[in-house]
Amino acid sequence: MPPYISIGGYSDPPLMTYLSVEVNKGEMVVVAGPPGSGKSNLIKSMAGIRGFSKGSMKILGSRPWTLRSRQETVFVFQNWNFLPDLPIRIQLERKVALYRGVSPRTVRMLVDRWCDDVELAGTIDRYPGQLNRSDLQMLALAPVALARPAVAILDEPMVNLSSIRVSSALEIILSVLENGAVLALAQGRSPLVNRADRVVNLA
């Protein structure tokens, strides 16, 4: 079986000069590096919203910017990617609906149930500006939990979480491994490093 994620000879100087990594089904690989080492640029390149100078990338056998690979991949960017002017509920429901292809009513039910499970039910109808960083970071993981993606690519998913949310977030991320693969970009001290199958350290 071909790897779910494959990066070959990726280069984005001056931040990152060389990276090759493969992630197979059931694996979580962490690319660890200090702030400013090019991790955020890497996830943007993988999402096809940023060019890079050298190398190749494939997600589920397709180039990352194709619709086919995006249909099975959830990207979680740093800083949550919530629109400041709409309630969280609308944003989450629309995002989850893109992956699940079920009725709006079902999506609403799924989102509500998940928010109950992670004790965020009181936050869902608020605007992003009214929530703290830890809650926003947790809510940004909702598509990972609800979309059932084959691939999750996450940029610093634990960095803003309060200590009481870390284990729930880890559980969500690890649940992807049942049917998929995870590539997480994190700093060296992230809790993800201890749970990863492999860690690739950036210089």
Binding site: I49, N81, F82, P84
Partner: peptide, 13 residues
């Protein structure tokens, strides 16, 4: 906007 740019990673054309 940053949110729009990152939303291009969603499964939409």
């Amino acid at each position: 906007a940053g949110w729009f740019r990152n939303s291009l990673a969603l499964p939409v054309s």
